[in-house]
Amino acid sequence: MLKKIICNTIIFFMLITLTANATTIIAVIGENKIMLAADTRLTITKKNGEKVHEDNGKKLYKLKNGVGVAFAGDTNSIKTLRSGKDIITKSVSTIINDLNNLNCIDNLSVAETAELIAEKYVNLLIDYTGDILVVGFDNDEPVIYGIKAVKGRAIWQGISGKGSFWAIGSGSEMMVKKLRENVGCEENNNMDLCMDHLKELKDREILSIIKESLQEVIDDYEENYREEERSTGGKVDTLTIKP
């Protein structure tokens, strides 16, 4: 079990009437980098059930300690906690700001950062259901941690090694299918075989393929789904994490 990290901070959350949900995000470990790609569409579900879309959403973040974080799911569904008369509204972007303002953040490993997010943030977001990727290098070894949150209960595990990848969000299955096609292993569902193909590629080639694959997912949603059903859309955003 990973050691517990105690940081001197108190986080306050306020339940708001909008929830942003669904997305397509992937992280792939390359030769010397970890590459993330995400669409930029946010699907906003109002309290009355009406859905509206915002195509300039930010889902990929880099912390001060060099760790990358990606969120998918009900990222604005948050809890109310009070301190005297003060109520502070938080969302994913402000959670990231809180992390960067912690005195301990510079010294946290990728694993410790993932544990901090899982224990001190996700467990406070009692209505949050979704996935979070936490990626980076521990002792120069690349690692991807995936956090699965179900109504604020965090379950997480990690994978590492060149060619390893992790896709999250409503379009993740389609994303993996496109990735397999574009690396030439679409005839076989064996993920190990797909990773073998990725291991042979340079980082720039991997980044090009995941951008191409995600653009195809976005195009597929636009072509085959009604506007209110397009949980993936906008444009392709990328983030590269180095040792």
Rank of each mutant, 00 (worst) to 15 (best):
L2Y: 04
K4I: 04
N8T: 12
N8C: 11
N8H: 11
N8G: 12
T9P: 03
F12V: 09
M14S: 01
T19N: 04
A22I: 02
T23F: 02
T24I: 13
I25R: 04
I25F: 09
I26V: 06
I26A: 01
G30I: 02
G30C: 04
G30K: 07
E31R: 08
N32W: 03
K33G: 00
K33R: 12
K33D: 02
A38K: 07
A38R: 11
D39L: 10
D39Q: 13
D39K: 11
R41V: 03
L42P: 04
T43I: 08
G49F: 10
E50L: 08
E50K: 00
K51Q: 05
V52T: 14
H53K: 04
G57D: 08
Y61R: 10
K64L: 15
N65L: 10
N65W: 15
V67K: 06
G68V: 15
A70V: 14
F71T: 03
F71N: 04
A72P: 10
A72W: 09
A72R: 01
G73E: 04
G73Y: 05
G73D: 00
S77M: 06
I78A: 11
K79C: 06
R82G: 06
R82T: 15
S83H: 06
D86I: 15
K90D: 11
S91T: 14
L99K: 12
L102Y: 11
L102V: 13
L102D: 05
N103G: 07
N103D: 07
D106T: 14
N107V: 12
A111N: 07
E112L: 03
E112R: 04
E112G: 00
A118W: 05
E119A: 02
E119M: 09
K120N: 13
K120S: 05
Y121P: 01
V122M: 03
L125R: 05
L125T: 06
G130D: 05
G130W: 09
V135G: 01
P142A: 02
V143E: 01
V143C: 00
V143Y: 00
I144A: 00
I144W: 03
Y145N: 07
Y145H: 05
Y145M: 04
G146A: 00
G146S: 04
A149K: 07
A149Y: 05
V150S: 01
R153V: 01
K162A: 00
S164P: 09
W166C: 00
W166V: 06
S172K: 11
S172H: 08
E173M: 04
M174A: 14
M175T: 07
M175I: 09
V176N: 10
K178R: 12
L179S: 01
R180T: 06
E181Y: 10
N182A: 06
V183E: 10
V183Y: 11
V183S: 09
N188S: 14
M191T: 08
D192W: 08
D192Y: 08
C194Q: 05
D196A: 07
D196K: 14
H197C: 13
E200C: 03
R204E: 15
E205Q: 12
E205A: 03
I206A: 01
S213H: 14
S213W: 11
S213D: 12
S213L: 13
L214P: 08
E222A: 15
E227P: 10
E227L: 11
R230W: 13
R230Y: 12
S231K: 07
S231Y: 14
T232M: 02
G234R: 06
G234C: 09
K235S: 14
T240V: 15
T240M: 06
T240K: 05
T240Y: 02
I241D: 05
I241V: 11
K242L: 08
